[in-house]
Amino acid sequence: MKKEQRLLIVTFSLPALLLYIYFFLSPVGEVMYYSFFEWDAVSSKTFVFLENFKVLISDPVFYRSLLNTLHLLAFLILLMIPLALLLAYLLYTEVRAFKFLRTVFFIPVIISSVATALMFQFIYENYFGILNTFLRSIGLGDYTRVWLSDPATVMSAVSLPLVWSHLGLIMIILLAGLQGVSTEVLEAAEMDGANEFQRLIRVIIPMISGVISLCLVLAVTTAFKQFDFILILTQGGPLHRSEVTGSYMYNQGFGMMNYGYGSAIAVSIMVIAVVVSVAVQKALNKAER
């Protein structure tokens, strides 16, 4: 190898490599290291080895946060994906105002989660909020409630903005998948007298199963990544009823200054995320073969 080439490889790699190692890979090691300590960031660290993890596996709030994360996932899989598929299919069957509709569906994807959270706060607001005002105006005033403080409704209330803000992306991906389906197959199905719904269920869905499994992967990673809506809308309350793994880590670390315990939660999030994405990827590869 020529000297000039070697010099270029080194000088071109170093800036990205050094910043990446120092600010990304080393925090991965640091969070694991901190998880072995009891530490409030002010006094000195006490080495407790796996004690934080022992506490974690018998911590009911941690289980509640895992369960709530699965609740988010259920909304994404059972509500968002079918709805996105239906909208993508309808857009695919040639509509007027295609671009306008696509824009309206997609805008929620790119707006800040803070803006989305505040908009949904206006929907849920007790006195003048959109939902309660609407219920009162159609004579269902008895059904109004304080959606974000009621333990029975809070998880659904924080799941809906998540569905709304990710639906556009899933729809665009499914639409791209649909546009790859050959029209000949569809024409053949139409000749055989299949109606629109039969075509969707029997012909189209099996043909884009690869893209649908990709959307399932995205739903899983989205559910496990999510916590800014919850941080803004409820802070995990009332009484941890809307706590998810991310918000629990945040509250332990920055709220209660339990840096060691917060780090142990962060490590478990990391492990779960890696294990789940590898498992889903494996299942996906298997399904494709």
Binding site: V28, K225, Y259
Partner: peptide, 13 residues
């Protein structure tokens, strides 16, 4: 594969 939020505490420190 690494969720960005899990690095919040070490990055802060």
């Amino acid at each position: 594969a690494i969720p960005m939020q899990s690095l919040l505490l070490p990055t802060f420190l």
